[in-house]
Simulated scan of single mutants.
Amino acid sequence: MKRHVEYAWRLRELMAAREMNNISDLIPHLEDRGVALSASQIYRLIGGKPERMNLALLGALLDALDCTFEELCPTTVVAVPARERLTGTEASTAKKDAVRPVRARIHRPE
């Protein structure tokens, strides 16, 4: 079995709990910590689930919201079953049992 890591992004919820309802409420907190982002970058950060993030930005978010990584981004590990592959013996057995078309024969008219 393969293991797949899933995560949730709770930035909007944590901002609301700390009475930060707008993008403009978060910008000064990040700038105080040396992170300068545009309003559109912060909008994408709040609205979506980021796939990659700068560690300086992550640290600034954790400090500005006074939370831990587990509160901001809870993770779970899910076991995903691996695909089963046919071995040579199983594949040959499957081919023998399959219905094969009958070859057409064309006769010339006499």
Rank of each mutant, 00 (worst) to 15 (best):
V78G: 00
G47Q: 14
G48E: 15
A79H: 10
L62Q: 05
A79F: 01
R83A: 13
Q41G: 08
L37G: 03
E71D: 15
C73H: 13
L61V: 03
Q41N: 13
S40Q: 14
T68Q: 06
S40P: 07
D66I: 01
P81I: 02
C67M: 04
S38A: 08
F69I: 04
T75W: 11
T87A: 11
Y43P: 00
N54H: 08
C67I: 02
D63W: 01
R52W: 10
S38P: 05
T68K: 05
L72K: 00
A79W: 04
G47V: 01
Y43C: 08
L45E: 08
E90Y: 05
E51Q: 14
S40W: 09
N54C: 11
L62G: 04
Q41R: 13
L86Y: 07
L62C: 02
V80L: 15
L57I: 07
G59C: 03
I42R: 09
R44Y: 11
P81T: 03
A56I: 06
T76C: 01
G88T: 05
M53V: 08
T76D: 15
R83E: 15
A60Y: 03
L57Q: 11
G48H: 12
L72A: 04
S38F: 00
G48A: 07
V77P: 12
C73K: 13
L55S: 12
G59K: 00
R52P: 06
L37N: 05
Q41P: 00
E51G: 14
M53G: 11
L37W: 02
S38T: 14
E90A: 14
V78P: 08
F69T: 02
L61S: 04
T87M: 09
T68N: 00
E84Q: 15
E90V: 01
L65H: 05
L72C: 09
L55P: 06
T68E: 08
A64H: 05
K49V: 13
G47Y: 12
G88C: 06
L45V: 10
E90L: 12
A60D: 02
R83F: 11
A79S: 07
D63E: 12
